[in-house]
Design a protein around this nucleic acid. Structure first.
Lengths: 156, 156
DNA sequence: CACAATTCAATTGCACACAACTAAATGACG
DNA sequence: CGTCATTTAGTTGTGTGCAATTGAATTGTG
């Protein structure tokens, strides 16, 4: 409705990306505290979530669920292996593929993790519906941004 | 309305943090493309935004605007200095402090950066009001999370 | 079967983010 | 004036995140 002067577009406090970035790091701070007893970082926790839900998976599939590539996952999985939570085994059927398997200890950790999402949800100060609403918005945003990134890259 | 079984809280697709993380990285992807001609990364762009808006600042103040500490800013500012966009000079009044100053080149870059926010805004697929709404939500979220992190940490 | 294209994980290099620590400078207080 | 707590950058170490490359294994095609 109001026309915005071009220079104002540069004002930091109008930058949606900055708010997103700040929220993302604020989440990181809460997760750091909450996950400390589990001995997990936030990305490691995400990997464990996927394994708990879907069972053993090759690295590739794991990456698809998390939108992460092997450059990120390889060292992360090695740390989880050192921690005794997963094993990595070459697939017999396809020697290129590496299966990530939960150990007993890794599977057992799930019990202690059950309380995490509720603690996080409480920390947001949002109720379930507000969280759902925000999630939908963010997913919509991600979809649009991914599409735009492809277009921008193609325009080079 | 519906009571959610505890186990479902662990389902990845319900994780607000995951959506936020995904959106944050999707933004990163668009910014990477858009900022490539400017020779800036996204965090470097944020630093330049602050300097363009507020003028020369000590590292400390810069960090307060961006919620970043010297461990992140020091190497980042060195890269901006190598790129010729800023100078870092010990304050005469307080030898502990380092003033970050825009060079001619750094100040000039602002002209080329003016188009960036609009390209980003277009990439989101949201109109101005939707962006404002989402920003408000995210800022509210960040505030709640920061407060919760302090409480959780204090509860140790 | 042979050979090119593809797939997949790992590695390398670069750039954050943040905790913990160091070191220098300042300021407050006795 | 001297001492000590505080402030401020910088450094180090760990852990992502991603682009680019490598190398091995597989698949598709003739």
């Amino acid at each position: 409705m109001t026309t915005t002067p071009t220079a104002d577009w540069l004002r930091l406090d109008q930058q949606i990306c900055f708010s997103l970035n700040a929220a993302s790091r604020a989440f990181g701070g809460v997760y750091r505290v909450v996950l400390k007893d589990l001995g997990l970082t936030y990305p490691q926790y995400l990997v464990m979530l996927v394994l708990w839900e879907h069972g053993d998976l090759p690295v590739k599939k794991l990456g698809e669920h998390l939108r992460l590539d092997s450059g990120t996952l390889s060292p992360l999985l090695k740390r989880l292996e050192v921690a005794g939570l997963v094993r990595r085994e070459r697939s017999a059927r396809d020697e290129r593929s590496v299966e990530v398997r939960l150990t007993e200890e890794g599977a057992a950790l799930r019990e202690r993790a059950l309380q995490v999402p509720r603690r996080i949800a409480t920390a947001t100060g949002f109720d379930v519906d507000e969280i759902r609403e925000l999630r939908a918005r963010l997913d919509q945003l991600t979809e649009a941004l991914d599409a735009a990134a492809v277009e921008e890259a193609a325009a080079e």
